[in-house]
Simulated assay, not measured.
Amino acid sequence: MALTDADVQKQIKHMMAFIEQEANEKVEEIEAKAEEEFNIEKGRLVQTHRLKIMEYYEKKEKQIEQHKKIQMSNLMNQARLKVLKARDDMIADLLKEARQRLAEIAKDPARYSTLLEGLVLQVNSLAALILRYNLCLSTFQGFYRLLEPKVTIRCRQQDVEIVQAAVTKNIPIYKDAVKSNIEVRIDMERFLPSDICGGVEVYNDNGKIKVSNTLESRLELLAQQMMPEIRMNLFGANPNRKFMD
């Protein structure tokens, strides 16, 4: 039986509706897949950038922490240097006061005469005098140190008479001790500076060997020898020191 125009149109409409429905379903399927892929890619990008941001701020945090450590170390070093400088200044003031006290000895003729006798021959007398000012000096010799047949003594110009008396007194003592003669000359052309505390310098005959027994040199020697003990008494034991020898 032949189809009428109405039947044909009806079938065409039915086929168009079917095709349209399939097309809509395909569109929905494509949109759903695209949405899924979009969400997956979006999640991936968000996670990737999130990790990058976290790494960036972790790096910044580490840099800040490192910078803080460096600043703290610098501040501690600066504070340590200030403490060390303050300690050095205190020791310098202590030595300055000691020098001033040594200068007072030369103002007492009797004590200074005894002191020079010790400096010319040996320093037992010096040690006894300086101990009264808390300055313990080890034995350091003049004539005995050189053991030369001829020596020259240099002193302050104002000390010439006292030194001459000390030489006169100590030559017999020296001869008796070493069983040898000695010729002593006081240098009357070149004197020690008048602004030093006192003492003498003893030279051998050609002037190439010198024994410095000025009060300043003795004080410097003392400071070097007793510096660990001085620091211990002033500032206590160093907690960072591992070896005591």
Rank of each mutant, 00 (worst) to 15 (best):
M1V: 01
T4D: 04
D5M: 06
V8D: 03
I12D: 09
K13S: 15
K13M: 12
F18M: 13
A23Y: 09
E25V: 08
E28V: 09
E29M: 14
K33P: 04
A34Y: 05
E37D: 10
E41P: 02
E41A: 10
R44E: 15
V46S: 08
Q47E: 09
T48M: 02
H49E: 09
R50K: 12
M54E: 13
E55V: 01
E61P: 01
E65I: 13
K68N: 07
L75K: 14
L75H: 10
L75N: 11
L75A: 12
N77I: 15
Q78E: 12
A79F: 08
L84T: 07
K85S: 10
K85G: 03
M90G: 11
L95H: 01
L95V: 06
R99Q: 10
Q100K: 15
R101C: 05
I105Q: 02
A106F: 08
A110V: 08
R111N: 09
T114G: 15
T114N: 15
L116N: 08
Q122V: 00
V123A: 03
V123N: 08
S125Q: 07
L126Y: 00
L126K: 08
A127T: 14
A128V: 13
I130H: 02
I130T: 13
L131Q: 10
R132T: 15
Y133Q: 14
Y133G: 12
L135R: 06
L137Q: 03
F140Q: 06
Q141M: 08
G142C: 02
Y144H: 03
R145E: 03
L146V: 02
L147H: 14
L147V: 15
E148I: 05
K150W: 00
C155N: 05
Q157H: 06
Q158D: 04
Q158Y: 11
D159T: 08
I162N: 00
V163W: 09
V167I: 05
N170D: 09
N170W: 09
I171M: 07
I171C: 02
P172R: 11
I173R: 06
Y174L: 08
K175W: 07
K179I: 14
N181L: 05
R185E: 03
D187K: 14
D187A: 06
F191S: 02
P193C: 06
P193T: 09
S194H: 11
I196G: 11
C197V: 13
G198H: 00
G199C: 03
V200K: 12
V200A: 07
Y203H: 04
D205K: 12
K208L: 09
K208I: 04
N213L: 12
L215K: 01
L215W: 00
L215S: 00
S217H: 04
S217L: 03
R218A: 02
E220M: 12
M226P: 01
M227G: 02
R231C: 14
N233F: 10
L234M: 06
L234K: 01
F235H: 05
A237Y: 11
N238S: 03
P239T: 15
N240G: 03
R241T: 15
F243Y: 08
M244C: 08
